[in-house]
Design a protein around this nucleic acid. Sequence first.
DNA 1: ACTTCTACTGAACGGCCAGTCACACTATAC
DNA 2: GTATAGTGTGACTGGCCGTTCAGTAGAAGT
Lengths: 193, 193
Amino acid sequence: MVSTISAARERVQAAAERLFAERGYKAVTLRDIAQELGIRQASLYYHFPGGKEELYVTVTERGLQAHREGLEQAIAGAGESLEAGLRAVLQWFASHPPVDLARMLLADFPAISEEHRKRLTELALDCLVRPIENFLQGARKRGEGGAVDTRFAALAILSAAEAIHANARLTGKEPSELVETALPVLLKGLAGS
Amino acid sequence: MVSTISAARERVQAAAERLFAERGYKAVTLRDIAQELGIRQASLYYHFPGGKEELYVTVTERGLQAHREGLEQAIAGAGESLEAGLRAVLQWFASHPPVDLARMLLADFPAISEEHRKRLTELALDCLVRPIENFLQGARKRGEGGAVDTRFAALAILSAAEAIHANARLTGKEPSELVETALPVLLKGLAGS
DNA sequence: ACTTCTACTGAACGGCCAGTCACACTATAC
DNA sequence: GTATAGTGTGACTGGCCGTTCAGTAGAAGT
């Protein structure tokens, strides 16, 4: 089976994706997911015979790949400048639920089987870090951006995206507003221009 | 009782602090903590009659306050410049286990009682964000630093510290080395000088 | 000598969890 | 009208969880 396009299965995935992203693997029970959908927990096994882990792996994979595609399109559609690309990346993350990469790597992935863990770990780097790193390297080739470590810079941008969400929760502002607050800090640094 | 200075209790706290910080509240069981100490799980209730939650709240509180003191001393001992203070802050975080603030706020705290949750939430901001914010405001008054939003900048620095740990895990380098990689990015931004 | 305190144990409790399975209810297809 | 496939249910199991509690062994106090 390549991919069943059942509407019911799709609904299960959507609910699971939201809950897992919010609370993490261990803190979400199958009963939580079922309740959200108005069905019994046993029914989830019809759509995902592999149980909780299969469900988690499926939606996490899908979510990560959606981030890769979204990031690549956002960057591609943003024009040439470092600032425009960076704004597009931050706007992408600001308009989606926060991705807690540290929690994934430290808490969620260790709770699943090793083969799944390894695949998801690689995928996470591939989908979240690499698109940003590629963008930064491209910008440097075009003469923009200093001689910073692009790997660290990519992780810093990811972290800044999480800082935007944290700040939004603390202040009640919209994440997308805060992108314009974050941009000058990332571009020109704390020392200002 | 103000504070029992039992060595055994201290050992329990140390083990619990390490495990909770690594994996989060839900993912750590009392049996994990007891095993680490070579004792039975029931024995933990001798030192912490309040059970898992009391243990978690106690060590989290202690850990947060240690961060506040460490940060304030690091900043105070670093000299006047923005760069020196920032280096001290990053070095402090680099030489301690990573603090996953997002996981705390989103996954750990919602699992404990509301009164504890509220107190720990305030404490987390007070111990992690505020010292950095105060430092940035002081630097600005002395004429250093641009007109950036200090609340966001403080969260960005915290996030950068987590990015340092993430990078260390990915590359195998020591976190304290990576501080010098992170500093120019934070000070001068991605655009370079 | 006895009591008291500290540190810990073993066994059990109820509760929630993931997972299993036989069964029921639709619809549409033949 | 009957077969068939998609979707969901109720009742259950075994296991791990946090928690409780009576009990113990040794050290310290009196």
